[in-house]
Structures are given as structure tokens and as C-alpha cells.
């Protein structure tokens, strides 16, 4: 009897969730779509554009991790996309809007080559192998004079004719939405299921005929395509960049966005990026101290939300439910 009612409750909750999620999503998208109409400050539009860019990078990083590999070169792949597009536009004079998808494709190909090269490495060995690759990419950028080397690259052609932040804001909003939807559909397709199976046991996966090496290479290609895309967009938006934006620390911060948000959930990296990007904005006066706030957030997540910020609603719910139950029990005993 009790179980029945619990199941019933569950189904009600589920149908509630089914309505609540799309509504929440629609509200969020509407909020960001209407935001520039109310807030004209170029500074906030700039910060939000950057947030969109890094959200895509973090989500695409997480997409690779569902196959059980943890790449530590994602920042470098963003750099590959950015530098390729910038070089094409600057030296060959191609239209930036053409360079961006081209360099995204090139990044995907490089990502698949690296995935092929490292396909026999697993777990920590794969992570460190890709870490070395990322470091190597930065050295290569330093070594070629056309990239500007240590001082960075300047005079990258602008994406649109205008310098108006609002145009770029909408561009990145749309690009981020498209990328996120594409990655979402990818993860919850049969390919995503196969990747998750490989993550759980590559032995079992290949025993039922899954070519695990090929699928791991494929997911590298997909993840790198989107990070290359957004990296290229970043290059033409910023118009100047230096390799330090794509070094190991940058990769590590991408990993932090994913881990803080919650690596087991698709929404995790999105939430993580928004928190880590927007939190320091509340303490903008203390700019040089702002890393402390990010670190503090890390500490809070480590100790109180080991499954990431996405687990916060569930944690709060169970906390209040427990308290509610406690009150009910004390009421009963009181009467």
C-alpha cells in the first residue's frame, strides 16, 4: 500500500518535471534573448559572450569524457581552431564567416588524428598523453613566427563590420544554442549510448562487436569540432590573442567548469561555466582577489556537493524533506 502511494507520488513528480524542464529552458532562453534590450552595458554583453564561448568549450569537453577518456588538451584544441581561423583570415584574406567552419572542420580532423594516435592509451595514460600534446601545441605556436609567438597575434580580421557588442552577443548566443543542442542530441543518440557503454567496460563493449577505438576517435572529432568552432569565433571576436589563453591552465579551468557543475550531467558544464564566470563579477572591485572566490567555490563543491552544482536541488530537497519529516515526527509524539 505504502509502496503504491510512493510510486504514484513518483509518477506525479515525473510528470511535473516533464513540464517544468521545458518551461525553465524557455524562460532561460527568453531571458538571454531579451537581455540586451534591457541592459545596454557593453561590459556585461562582453562578459556574457565570453560565458557562451566557454560554455560550448566545457560542454564539448564533457562530451568526450562520456566515452571514459579524459582529455587534457581541450584548451589547446580551442587554440588550434582559433589560430587556424585567424591565420586563414589574416594571411589569405578569406571571409571570417567562412574561416570559422573551415577551421572547425580542420580542428575535428586533427582531433581525430590525435584520438587515433592515442587510441591505445587508456585512463591516466590517455589523459597525460593528451596533456603533453596540448603543451606541444603551445610550443609549436611559439615556434612559428607567423603566429606572433610569445607576444601573441594581433590584427585578426573582425567577424562583422560592426564593433557593436550586441551583434556579437546574439551571434554567440545562437552559436552556443546550436552547438549545445547538437551535442545534446549526440549524447542521447545511439552513438552516445555506445560511448557510455565503452566507458563502463571496453572489454565487454568490444565483445558485442563495438569498435571501441573508432568510437573513441569519433567522439574526439565531434568534441574538437565544436571547441574549434567556438575557438575560431573567439579569435575573430577578440581580434588579438596569445597562446597563454590556450595553455594547460586554460584546459584545467575548462575541466573545473565541468567538474564544478557536475560531470555526470549534461547541464553540469553549463551551470559550472556560468557560476565560475559570473561569480567574480559580483566582486569586480576586488579584481585581483577574484581567483580566491573561484577557489572558494571549488572548496564548497568539493566538500558539500561532490557530484557538482547540478546536485544542489536534490540535496536541498532531501535536506528539507528530512527536516519536514523530523517536524512531523515531533508533532506526533507531542500530541
Amino acid at each position: 500500500m505504502k509502496r503504491m502511494s510512493a510510486e504514484h507520488q513518483n509518477s506525479i513528480n515525473k510528470s511535473k518535471e516533464k513540464i517544468a524542464k521545458p518551461v525553465l529552458l524557455a524562460v532561460l532562453i527568453a531571458f538571454f534573448a531579451l537581455f540586451p534590450l534591457f541592459v545596454r552595458s557593453p561590459y556585461y554583453l562582453h562578459i556574457l559572450s565570453l560565458t557562451f564561448i566557454y560554455t560550448v568549450a566545457a560542454v564539448s569537453l564533457r562530451t568526450i569524457t562520456i566515452s571514459g577518456q579524459f582529455p587534457l588538451a581541450h584548451g589547446a584544441f580551442m587554440g588550434i581552431g582559433a589560430y587556424l581561423s585567424a591565420l586563414m583570415a589574416k594571411f589569405w584574406g578569406w571571409l571570417p564567416l567562412l574561416c570559422i567552419p573551415l577551421s572547425a572542420l580542420a580542428t575535428a580532423v586533427i582531433g581525430m588524428l590525435v584520438g587515433f594516435l592515442f587510441s591505445r592509451l587508456r585512463s591516466l595514460h590517455y589523459a597525460v598523453g593528451s596533456l603533453f600534446f596540448g603543451i606541444g601545441v603551445i610550443y609549436i605556436i611559439y615556434a612559428f613566427p607567423c603566429t606572433g609567438g610569445y607576444t601573441g597575434m594581433m590584427g585578426i580580421p573582425r567577424l562583422f563590420q560592426t564593433a557593436d557588442k550586441m551583434t556579437y552577443y546574439y551571434f554567440f548566443l545562437v552559436l552556443a544554442l546550436i552547438s549545445i543542442v547538437a551535442l545534446y542530441r549526440f549524447e542521447f543518440s545511439h552513438i552516445g549510448t555506445i560511448l557510455k557503454a565503452i566507458a563502463q567496460s571496453h572489454l565487454v563493449a568490444s565483445s558485442v562487436g563495438i569498435n571501441e577505438a573508432w568510437y573513441r576517435i569519433l567522439v574526439n572529432g565531434v568534441g574538437c569540432f565544436f571547441v574549434g568552432l567556438i575557438g575560431a569565433g573567439y579569435a575573430h571576436y577578440n581580434m588579438a590573442m596569445s597562446p597563454t589563453a590556450f595553455n594547460f591552465m586554460a584546459t584545467l579551468w575548462l575541466c573545473m567548469y565541468v567538474l564544478i557543475g557536475g560531470i555526470n550531467s549534461f547541464a553540469g558544464p553549463i551551470i559550472g561555466t556560468f557560476f565560475l564566470f559570473l561569480l567574480p563579477e559580483f566582486v569586480r572591485d576586488l579584481q585581483e582577489y577574484s581567483p580566491y572566490f573561484s577557489a572558494l567555490l571549488l572548496l564548497i563543491v568539493i566538500f558539500f556537493m561532490p557530484r557538482g552544482l547540478v546536485s544542489l536541488p536534490a540535496l536541498l530537497k532531501s535536506y528539507f524533506l528530512k527536516r519536514g519529516e523530523g517536524e512531523r515526527i515531533s508533532n506526533v509524539s507531542g500530541s
Binding site: L252, C255, M256, L259, S294, A295, L298, V301, I302
Partner: peptide
């Protein structure tokens, strides 16, 4: 890993 990054950032 997160704890290590925390220490490094601090």
C-alpha cells in the same frame, strides 16, 4: 584533482 587546483590557485 579539484582540491589540487584549489591549492594551486590559492
Amino acid at each position: 584533482i579539484m582540491a589540487c587546483v584549489f591549492v594551486a590557485v590559492i
